[in-house]
Amino acid sequence: MSVIVAAGPTSVPTATASPTTMVNGVLSTVGGCQTAIPQLIRWCTDQERLTPEVPMMLRLNPFGTRIVVLGAALNRDGSMKPVLVTRLLAALSLARTFPTAGLITTGGLPRGGRTEAQAMRTWLIAHGVAGNRVATENRSRSTAENARNTAAMLAAGRATGAVVVSSPAHVKRAMLNFRSAVRGSIPVAGVISGYTNGAAQGTGSGSGYLGS
């Protein structure tokens, strides 16, 4: 099991959070989503609006919050499909703005001699993220397993919250799985990929999402 090493405290961006982000922040904590009750998790998650914006927990506590990037099947040669690169671009945007936040890449289906998590970690490091910030979860073969295996890593690393990054059609299911897996021990928020996520601009590996 990998251990995430993060730097010391940093300043939080001063951009004003939108009403949607603030409501989602309340729901993910005191609003009912941080619970071990499955029915309440589902009801509360259904009330949230999907957004690419930075979640409140990451704004308020980047040191304790982990950015979790969900994997997607690799090509036969181990290269990444565009959908996975898009998720990584969103995570990279967040990682550059919040340099004390640790990251976890999760996905265990191997292709071309490496897992999804290993491919994502290599990509993030190649784009400037320090290797000691990125832990990998290499055993899972489904979103539910992503959540269960990552929950153990979050607990071991004493994370205070988790932000799951995935495609718009996948984020809510991932949030449900992760909230169930952590059983109310920490809040879980979601970020949809395909945008700059209101965070730092940078060079994007040919997709154009982050600008230059």
Score class of each variant (00 low, 15 high):
S2A: 07
A73W: 13
S28Q: 07
V85H: 03
V134H: 06
S193G: 06
I67A: 04
I104A: 04
P110C: 14
S185E: 00
L210G: 15
A200N: 13
R141M: 10
S212A: 14
T203F: 15
L74Y: 12
G31M: 06
A200K: 15
L27C: 03
T14K: 05
S11T: 10
R111C: 10
P52I: 08
S212D: 14
R141P: 01
Y195L: 04
A144M: 06
M153W: 06
T196V: 11
A152S: 14
V182S: 00
F98C: 04
R42V: 15
F98Y: 14
Y209R: 15
Y195P: 01
L88S: 02
T16C: 02
M56G: 00
E137M: 08
L154S: 03
Y209E: 15
S11W: 07
T196D: 13
V182E: 01
P19T: 01
M57V: 09
S205E: 15
G161L: 03
V3E: 09
A90S: 06
A130P: 05
G157F: 01
A147H: 08
A117M: 05
V164L: 08
A119N: 04
T35R: 13
S167Y: 03
A156F: 04
R76I: 14
M153Q: 10
Q47H: 08
R141A: 09
T115D: 05
G211C: 14
A72W: 11
A17H: 02
F178K: 02
P13F: 08
D77Q: 12
I67G: 04
S180R: 01
P168A: 05
G64K: 03
L40I: 15
T97K: 11
L103Q: 02
I37P: 01
V165A: 03
R111H: 12
T100F: 03
P110G: 09
T10E: 12
V83I: 12
A126K: 07
T29Y: 09
A73R: 14
A6Y: 11
T115K: 08
K172D: 00
F98L: 06
G198H: 12
N75I: 09
R158I: 01
P110R: 13
R76P: 09
N149V: 08
I37E: 11
S166R: 09
A101C: 04
V83R: 07
Y209V: 15
G161Q: 03
T143K: 11
P168M: 03
A17C: 04
A174C: 03
R87G: 05
N138H: 04
A155H: 05
T10N: 10
A72D: 13
A181D: 00
S180G: 00
R148S: 12
T143I: 11
R121K: 13
A36N: 14
A174F: 02
I186T: 00
Q47K: 14
G204K: 13
M57F: 04
I4F: 05
V164K: 05
S2N: 11
G128M: 11
R183I: 00
V129I: 15
T150W: 08
S140K: 06
I125W: 02
V68C: 09
R121H: 07
T150F: 07
A135N: 05
T136W: 07
R183Y: 00
T136C: 12
I186G: 00
A199C: 14
P38I: 13
G71V: 12
L88A: 02
V165E: 01
M56Q: 05
A181H: 01
P9V: 11
I125V: 10
R49T: 15
N24D: 04
F98R: 07
P52R: 06
T51R: 12
V182W: 01
R96Y: 11
